[in-house]
């Protein structure tokens, strides 16, 4: 049986503005039916990459293919784009929006009606078709935002921060929708700052830093490669440490967060080491609320990579 072509294949992509290269030999692959999470700090080039995929930016080099075809007006029709904002007409109902956007995506009137039924079901829009967009809650707007992008059954669905500003229930419901779409064979490229979301939802993730995507792969595999069997030791203090106390924690390998009330360190920990650590902190006069151990996640990897990126930026100047 023939494998369907990759939903997206980017090879050696170079994009620049005004003499500055934003993307440098970037490689990225989203298979059909795969959910790929693109992570990275603000300004890393995620928007530039999406604009390049959508044919809005002319690359300096490299190739992009969508469902096996190079970027062209025809192949762009295989993309469904879900912008970060609610890209719907606020005075129209969800149904009217789907009709209008279906027609604007090139579907005939009959095909639009058929597609509406499918998209409504896929996005779990239920009985909200006749509700005006401007009176809906954030979660329903986000679902409608996705439904409007899948009417023409794209091979590649690009979701730009699809769960911004929604509550936990709505976020979980959106996750279900995205999973269903990937099960239907759509390749999904998802940009997000929500690392929990990426870890639970995505079959592959990539960190976009300094114009390239590295590392990339399955989330658990990336975490294991980076941290091995190490665990995160998380220290919650009752009050911020004094300067000498903070220096001691830093020398011990802890890094601060949450206004110096939370300190984190990677290490091979056990219940005994927790007891020893608690006693040592007591002796140093630090009131500890909680000591806990945790498996590192994508957020830990993100922090480590961001730290390395900052170091590499700082080193030449030092």
């Amino acid at each position: 049986m023939n494998q369907p072509p990759d939903a997206l294949l980017v090879s050696g992509l170079r994009v620049g503005y005004g003499g500055r290269e934003v993307l440098k030999n970037l490689d990225l692959r989203v298979r059909a039916g795969e959910i790929y999470g693109l992570l990275g700090p603000n300004g890393a080039g995620k928007t530039t990459l999406i604009r390049s995929i959508c044919g809005r930016v002319r690359p300096l080099g490299g190739t992009i293919s969508i469902a096996g075809q190079p970027v062209s007006r025809k192949s762009l029709r295989r993309i469904g784009l879900v912008p970060q904002e609610i890209a719907l007409y606020p005075h129209l109902t969800i149904g009217e929006n789907l009709e209008v956007l279906g027609r604007l995506s090139g579907l005939s009137r009959d095909a639009t009606r058929t597609a509406m039924g499918w998209a409504t079901k896929a996005a779990n829009l239920g009985n909200h078709l006749h509700s005006r967009v401007d009176i809906l809650s954030g979660g329903w707007k986000r679902r409608a935002n996705i439904a409007a992008a899948i009417l023409h059954r794209p091979a590649l669905l690009i979701l730009d921060e699809p769960t911004v500003g929604v509550d936990v229930d709505a976020r979980n419901a959106l996750h279900d929708v995205i999973l269903q779409l990937s099960h239907a064979g759509m390749g999904v490229l998802l940009t997000t700052h929500d690392l929990d979301q990426a870890e639970t939802l995505c079959s592959s993730v990539g960190f976009l830093r300094s114009g390239t995507v590295a590392p990339q792969g399955e989330p658990r595999q990336l975490i294991e490669t980076a941290f091995g069997t190490q665990k995160e030791i998380i220290l919650e203090l009752r009050q911020p440490p004094t300067e000498p106390q903070a220096n001691t924690l830093l020398k011990s390998g802890f890094t601060p967060s949450n206004a110096n009330l939370t300190w984190i360190m990677l290490g091979n920990a056990s219940q005994n080491s927790a007891a020893e650590l608690g006693a040592a902190l007591d002796r140093a006069g630090m009131a500890v609320r909680e000591i806990r151990f945790r498996e590192p996640g994508l957020d830990s990897l993100f922090v480590r990579l961001s730290g390395k990126a900052n170091q590499s930026v700082m080193e030449p100047a030092a």
């Binding site: 044919g55 809005r56 762009l76 784009l81 912008p83 604007l104 409007a148 992008a149």
Partner: peptide, 14 residues
């Protein structure tokens, strides 16, 4: 343009 509707329409044939 700001809400992304134009981005969405621009990748289609319209």
């Amino acid at each position: 343009r700001h809400s992304g509707i134009l981005d969405r329409i621009a990748i289609g044939p319209a």
